[in-house]
């Protein structure tokens, strides 16, 4: 059965949650959530434990709603393998078939999606090039860096040329270069007309992709709409960013000179530095240049969600 939305030019919600609740035993993952996601890019924001991954797992049919109805492209999401022909998921967990090469993994995923061997190889070649992994395609996945793994995970989500793409924290733990590249890839996919839902606990990652965001906390919808209104609230709170790499002491010394960095703490092991900034946009824009051509290296970037959490508390209290 093909939904009337698939192939239709009429603008309807691509993803719809109607009074959806999801419990894990006594723990509530999603609490009476009603929302509609229209075509385009949508950011799904919330601190850890907000219910973002649960929402994505419900939308991709991996979980069954305890209550309510989840529809994607007009079809029931749960237990609907037909729908999987039209959706792609880049999962959050850092798991791959470790013994395979990048090429084999993508090819295997393409064949799992139903492509024949020749088409799967062509698709794998195309996607590996798209995510900038061509020089490393024949390397075993086990030896990939975090950024490479994220790229490969993104590539596997595209093997069936999905209409709807779910990206669960796609930038987590990546270095600045990979982060920039992944954002570019996602933007390019959005320009192709795909509906993309990107979850993140970092507002500044999402805002470069879309002004359209959904804010969640404790399994509830806190706000939905334009990111700028949320930004205004967030800028009152310092934003914490953790940089992981080598020679972090020198990196910290350099960061002290930046006027927008209002706080700095070197990790106990000397392999990380946590900074606080009131102008995260400026800092993120500077990250790629900060990561190259210096004696230090930045291997991973994490954004702590304290300020986002604070805003959620503020919004919930309103």
């Amino acid at each position: 059965m093909v939904s009337p939305i698939i192939g239709s030019s009429e603008v309807k919600p691509i993803i719809a949650f109607h009074e959806v609740s999801k419990w894990y035993g006594n723990v509530i993952g999603i609490n009476k959530l009603t929302l509609e996601i229209m075509p385009g890019v949508c950011g799904l924001l919330g601190p850890n434990g907000a219910g973002k991954s649960t929402l994505l797992q419900l939308a991709t049919g991996q979980l069954r709603a305890s209550q309510g109805r989840v529809e994607v492209l007009g079809e029931r999401a749960w237990n609907n393998p037909h729908l999987n022909r039209f959706i792609g998921l880049c999962p959050e967990q850092d798991a791959l078939y470790e013994w395979m090469t990048g090429q084999q993994f993508i090819q295997c995923c393409a064949q799992l999606a139903g492509l024949n061997a020749r088409a799967a190889k062509a698709k794998a070649d195309e996607l590996i090039e798209t995510v900038g992994m061509t020089p490393y395609r024949h390397r075993v996945v086990r030896g990939y860096s975090k950024g490479m793994r994220q790229r490969i995970k993104l590539a596997q989500a595209l093997v069936n040329d999905p209409k709807v793409l779910f990206l669960d924290e796609p930038m987590t733990g990546t270095d600045p270069v990979a982060r920039r590249d992944l954002l570019e890839i996602i933007r390019a996919l959005a320009n192709q007309g795909k509906t993309i839902v990107v979850s993140s606990h970092v507002l500044y990652e999402v805002q470069t992709l879309t002004p359209n965001v959904i804010l969640m906390n404790h399994g509830r919808l806190v706000a939905q709409g334009d990111i700028r209104q949320i930004r205004d609230l967030m800028d009152k709170h310092p934003h914490r960013i953790v940089l992981v790499g080598r020679q972090c002491r020198q990196l910290a010394a350099e960061l002290l000179d930046y006027p927008d960095v209002v706080g700095l703490r070197l990790g106990a092991d000397g392999a990380s530095v946590m900074l606080e900034t009131l102008r995260p946009d400026d800092f993120y824009a500077r990250l790629p240049s900060l990561a190259t051509g210096h004696p230090w290296s930045i291997d991973e970037v994490f954004s702590e969600d304290d300020n986002l959490d604070a805003v959620f508390h503020y919004l919930v209290d309103q």
């Binding site: 999606a113 139903g114 090039e129 020089p135 790229r151 069936n160 040329d161 590249d181 890839i185 390019a188």
Partner: peptide
Amino acid sequence: MTPNPVPVQQLPAKTPQTAGKADV
């Protein structure tokens, strides 16, 4: 290890092979 800085390619236009769902 740092990921490769290979520039991201422009996404290719859909070919009939990749655009169609009939091949699966």
